[in-house]
């Protein structure tokens, strides 16, 4: 068994004729938390969707747990997805089911376990995210942070080997943000999973990830451990980590000259 759960080699992806990702090389070892960072629209969510098998690479190799995602058929993809969890940006909980039923959903769909055992397993997952007491609530009764934690419990229901997180920190208050970050780290370590976190929250990520890839305009522009990233002098990384307004990512969207737009004569 390869030490790398995810191997991406020279991967490119295009929406019809618009290139979104170009020559991406990335790997994730088992047990690691990897962050993919970059400004909005840089292609990081597309990369996550490619890893999850929602789209196929236009070119290059993408292998998840030994499965070539460019070649896999739907049956193989579904088999792989039983070993994969995904946390969506706003949780994507099933609104017609209680918290407990949401967490038990995959267990009911994919196993023949008796109902009592399914309930116990779902309660254990909810306990791991601190929300056993919320088992009977409906998703509409949860706060944003609680919904994210229930979704996290749901994504670990089948003890997956890989979890993909799409902007897990977006819109959370500082307490929920810290709780979510700690949970991602703790669950990864406890369950021996691999976690891929797509985010633009630099400070929370630097505290809990093992390795970071920076994506800009579809290419990886920097990578390294949190210490290496903090010490990086690369202009893009510096601008991103310090939240500077102007730099390689310009403040202004490309436009003709200001004077010409205001029709001012020279």
């Amino acid at each position: 068994m390869s030490d790398n759960l995810i191997e991406i080699c020279d991967l490119s992806f295009a929406y019809s004729d618009r290139m979104v990702l170009k020559g991406i090389n990335l790997s994730a070892r088992r047990g690691q938390v990897i962050a993919i960072m970059g400004n909005s629209g840089c292609g990081k969510t597309t990369l996550l969707r490619l890893i999850g098998g929602a789209m196929r690479p236009t070119q290059g190799l993408l292998r998840v747990d030994g499965v070539d995602m460019g070649e896999v058929d739907q049956r193989g993809l579904y088999r792989l997805r039983r070993r994969m969890g995904m946390l969506f940006q706003f949780g994507a909980l099933f609104t017609d089911m209680s918290v407990l039923d949401n967490v038990a959903f995959q267990l009911r769909e994919h196993t023949d376990l008796p109902e009592e055992m399914i309930r116990d397993l779902a309660l254990m997952k909810l306990n791991a995210v601190g929300l056993r007491g919320a088992q009977d609530l409906m998703p509409s009764e949860l706060s944003g942070g609680m919904a994210r934690r229930v979704a996290l419990a749901r994504s670990i229901a089948l003890d997956p080997a890989l979890i993909l997180y799409d902007e897990p920190f977006a819109g959370l208050d500082p307490i929920s943000l810290g709780v979510t970050g700690n949970l991602i780290r703790r669950l990864t370590d406890t369950l021996g999973m691999t976690s891929i976190v797509v985010t633009h929250d630099v400070h929370e990520s630097l505290k809990m990830v093992d390795y970071i890839y920076f994506v800009s305009e579809g290419v990886i522009v920097a990578q390294g451990t949190p210490e290496e990233i903090k010490a990086s002098e690369l202009p893009y990384v510096h601008q991103f980590v310090h939240g500077e307004e102007d730099g390689p990512v310009p403040f202004h969207y490309p436009a003709p000259s200001y004077a010409a737009d205001l029709e001012l004569s020279a």
Binding site: G52, A54, R81, R82, A92, F94, F105, E109
Partner: peptide, 9 residues
Amino acid sequence: AAMEMMAVN
């Protein structure tokens, strides 16, 4: 999409 990711059609 979440259902798809859980290998449920």
